[in-house]
Amino acid sequence: MVEFRNVSMSYDKGHEVLNDISFKLEPGSMHFLTGPSGAGKTSLLKLMYLAQRPSCGEIMMFGRDVAKAMRDELPKLRRRIGVVFQDFRLLDHMTAVDNVALPLRIAGGSGAQINEHVEELLRWVGLEDKMLSLPSTLSGGEKQRVAIARAVIRRPDILLADEPTGNVDPEMAERLMYLFVELNKLGTTIVIATHDSALVKKVGAPRLHLVGGRLLHIEGNKKDISDFNVGKERDQ
């Protein structure tokens, strides 16, 4: 599903923030992306959600090298990827419903279909009473859940999350992680960049570890994920 082959990247022809990265993620897998600040986690995610192009190497996604995709081909590819940003990046002038509906409206979905799906998803993330709230009135955890709902509304093939638990309390972090695990069980390939080593250990998903723009090792085992049921227990 996702394969990096000797990928390097630099911003504006400056020094390389990613250096000779190679890895392969199986379809339906879940991985953590770890490493210290400045290691290149966000840059790696940017390459995966097609916001940047590598300076060299191949990025195989959806059966093709997306690094060489023409500019007008990118929207179609991007619609297959869901992204949860560290700073949420919700549109402040839109309600929670409208923010979550954005990917469907971009894809040309009809009004009734959009409302039905969006309201159902917002209920699923526990925001049924915040549907018409503006982001400025939501707490950090609520914003994060809106951002996650927006990222998954179109059932993307790949879900990328950059520090999704960075702005929420530990309890909310576990609840959000439970959401990711559930989505992964539905077949979505998930990559989560995080500093939270305790959470990584708790979920037990494989880990891509970056240091100074280099991928040091991949560790962990997918079968451990099924043991993660903190959120589930809490919801019950």
Partner: peptide
């Protein structure tokens, strides 16, 4: 510019 960036990342075409 942030709104435009979000629209792009969610798959909006330039024409939209």
């Amino acid at each position: 510019k942030n709104i435009i960036a979000i629209m792009h990342l969610m798959g909006a075409h330039d024409q939209m």
